[in-house]
Design a protein around this nucleic acid. Structure first.
Lengths: 354, 354
DNA sequence: TTTATTTACGCAAACGTTCCCGGAAAAATC
DNA sequence: GATTTTTCCGGGAACGTTTGCGTAAATAAA
């Protein structure tokens, strides 16, 4: 508590260090350090002394000094499009749960579906010396060079949800094809035939896979997918206008759809806003089904069937893989792609066409 | 890129340091350091050389080494109950915006409305040598000693949303009394008379202030507040059962309420879930109004009037105050309590009683 | 030309740790 | 009692920076 040089008595609190203990006990810092780490080459008596004094001083090792020495910060970075998104906030909870348990700090950043923001965040995180990165790429990202550069330097990266196929590392996602297929099937089984699809930017892995699932379902019912019924939102619904436009385009069609399948959380709610604004009744005039992890779904004015992802688990798995990558002594050569199963949450209210 | 000791050719990428530049250019580290910082005591020629080589090596100063030297990490901690809450995720965006601009990293932690988790997180963050803390205390927190201890050590803390009056430091919140009063008034003006209140734990500042506002509104209309109509949720609605219980208690009353006022985001949606589960029509049988920052409000099956807080702005203001505290050379003696205004978002659909 | 000043750089300490090495005293062996 | 071994501890370098101080050479003033 007392400091040597207090010109003004304004002393920012200085935490106790090993030196303080050493001086007080007339020992060397090496001895104290070893005593604290319970080394065998320190006598029981000395250890006792050191431990007691450390407790009295409320000593805690300085993690920054440790990081400098060990060349690792015990922190990992996470980049998602936005935390306000239920899917991502649940994923983050999963990430948190395993990271904290292993003593890692997680630093969360948002790309807001912007490539520039993602790159800036990437550089920032890298410069903050994090030990590894968990990322779900932004909808606007079509240039992967910044990520590739990082990866080629041997920096540990694990992708989740939105994958980059080109980069060989661990990846975690759901069976997007199956999930989309199931959702579309569900609409088909209810009698809907002109099913539109509002989806993310075409560069995204989830877009490709989910659209493929959607098309496969249609074909299985002998329906030819129509390009005019598929609308891509480059900013992933980050701009509501994007979705509103997509919806009004669909409504303007000579043959408007009788159902819409949306491929992500933001798009699902965005689409619902757009339909409401357009005065279209759900599911009376147009049915709606899509990916969503919102827990407010059952409270919506039109309870819709949704594809729910095991977000928490996805976060856990991704983090386990990342830590495994970080802590590995050998260079990791074998990479896994974990595919989890999504779940179709059927809303009983929406059980028949018209 | 080449390392001295590569037993296996497995080299974790080693970032370039000042030493590397110094050796390559046959200069001392001090000269390089000064050149990079554009010191006046380095010749233009040398600077040029150093800058060029630094760029070639893609040199970036090691923030950990900096932190160790400067005794500050340029990172701040944030503790909220949960990021999945719209209010908090919006606040975090505000925090992010000013922190990033000033070159600070923000480390987000969730208390999940648990005191134990909050204390653990607190200790963890403090041990991670963050420069300051932004906190909205958990609903379960009635013992403030851990926070007080930290504060008395001179650790910079700014409270937002959920304040602790006892601790004198900067605070940012909305006019909770006014917000609650307005919301209750709104219900009264629509003709509701038996208005219940479902609120957070009684230890919370927002609980006291919002309940006071609620009661003031009632009294202004000559209605005597009834204790039986006020239900406290210790876990802030974190457990849905808490809210469900509160609602069913209210419904069981000889004279059940004709409206409910909820004092937070989680409680508002939780109450809606409970009412739906109980088969109670909103606003037909019971009207609902409460605090909420969810952007899905207008999509709910019963569009309800809500009190909306300027969450983003609150995050910004709190962060500005914290950084000001952190970067101040003099001990700060004068503390501010910024009170922002909330907004009553009236849903046209819910315009009359029954 | 001599002295005073400036310019431009290097040395070394410091931040808080850990850990290799070396060595004195104590204990064990002969 | 002399030697070897063990036990226990201190010195000092290293991690990557910044910075106070010292100083040679170059320039300016005398």
């Amino acid at each position: 508590m007392p400091g040597k040089h207090g010109p003004e008595d304004f002393m920012k609190y200085r935490a106790a260090t090993i030196k303080d203990i050493a001086q007080a006990l007339r020992l060397s810092t090496s001895t104290v350090s070893r005593a604290l780490r319970d080394s065998h080459e320190i006598s029981a008596a000395t250890k006792q002394l050191v431990l007691e004094h450390a407790a009295r001083l409320n000593y805690h090792p300085n993690p920054i000094a440790l990081s400098l020495k060990e060349k690792k910060s015990r922190s990992i970075g996470v980049i998602v499009s936005e935390i306000a998104n239920s899917f991502f906030s649940q994923t983050i909870n999963g990430i948190d749960s395993v990271a904290n348990e292993k003593g890692y700090t997680v630093i969360i950043s948002q790309s807001h579906e912007s490539f520039e923001k993602e790159v800036r965040t990437l550089q920032y995180l890298a410069s903050r010396s994090i030990d590894g990165l968990l990322i779900s790429v932004s909808s606007a990202t079509k240039d992967f060079t910044p990520l590739k550069a990082l990866h080629q330097h041997g920096f540990p990266i694990v992708f989740f949800d939105r994958i980059i196929e080109d980069i060989t590392t661990h990846k975690v996602m759901v069976d997007n094809f199956q999930g989309a297929c199931n959702a579309t099937m569900h609409l088909l089984q209810q009698g809907y035939r002109r099913i539109a699809c509002i989806t993310n930017s075409a560069h995204l892995s989830i877009t490709r896979e989910r659209v493929a699932g959607y098309m496969a379902a249609l074909e299985k019912h002998g329906i030819q997918p129509q390009p005019a019924l598929i609308r891509y939102c480059f900013h992933g619904g980050m701009l509501l206008s994007e979705v509103t436009d997509a919806v009004s385009q669909l409504l303007k069609l000579k043959q408007p759809p009788d159902a819409i399948f949306t491929t992500s959380d933001k798009l699902t709610t965005g689409c619902m806003q757009a339909l409401k604004k357009a005065g279209v009744n759900i599911p009376g005039e147009i049915a709606l089904t899509g990916f969503s992890n919102s827990d407010l779904i059952e409270l919506l004015h039109a309870p819709i069937t949704v594809v729910r992802q095991p977000a928490f688990e996805m976060g856990q798995v991704a983090t386990e893989l990342l830590l495994q990558l970080i802590e590995s002594k050998q260079p990791v050569k074998e990479f896994e792609t974990r595919v989890l199963q999504s779940e179709l949450l059927i809303q009983p209210a929406a059980k028949g066409k018209k």
